[in-house]
């Protein structure tokens, strides 16, 4: 069973757009998480979300990996874009669409996926 940090790194590296958020797209639990998801939706991004609320260690391990202390955190092809503020600013300037086009192509899928980390036997 993979350690928590490894699971987090896998999501960051393997998902086209990874969003670590409070809650899920169906049940968003914080304003900034909602802002980030809305901006990504408006830019036509596929989204894979991870809820950080089930275990405080998720947020600790994530921040150790990314060096970013707050939630949400948005990654495109493994690269940290930032939180809600930056994602929104990039949407407004058109840079978000550009980055998605470059990273994922213009005919990209737009599915929304929720990934649950395996917390059972995490030490």
């Amino acid at each position: 069973m993979k350690e928590l940090r490894e699971q987090i790194e896998d999501v960051i590296e393997q998902e086209p757009v990874a969003v670590f958020m409070k809650g899920t797209p169906q049940m968003i639990m914080c304003g900034n998480s909602h802002r980030a998801l809305s901006a990504l939706h408006a830019a036509g991004a596929p989204v894979t979300t991870v809820d950080v609320l089930p275990d405080p260690r998720i947020r600790q391990e994530l921040s150790a990996v990314s060096g970013w202390p707050t939630i949400p955190q948005v990654f495109v092809k493994g690269e940290l874009i930032g939180g809600a503020d930056i994602t929104e600013e990039l949407l407004e300037s058109g840079a978000l669409q550009q980055k998605l086009d470059q990273a994922l192509g213009t005919d990209r899928a737009r599915e929304v996926k929720v990934v649950a980390l395996d917390l059972e036997r995490v030490a």
């Binding site: 970013w68 940290l80 874009i81 990039l90």
Partner: peptide, 10 residues
């Protein structure tokens, strides 16, 4: 870069 600006504030 914008992300570094925000990182410094954080």
């Amino acid at each position: 870069p914008l992300i570094e600006q925000h990182r410094r504030v954080n």
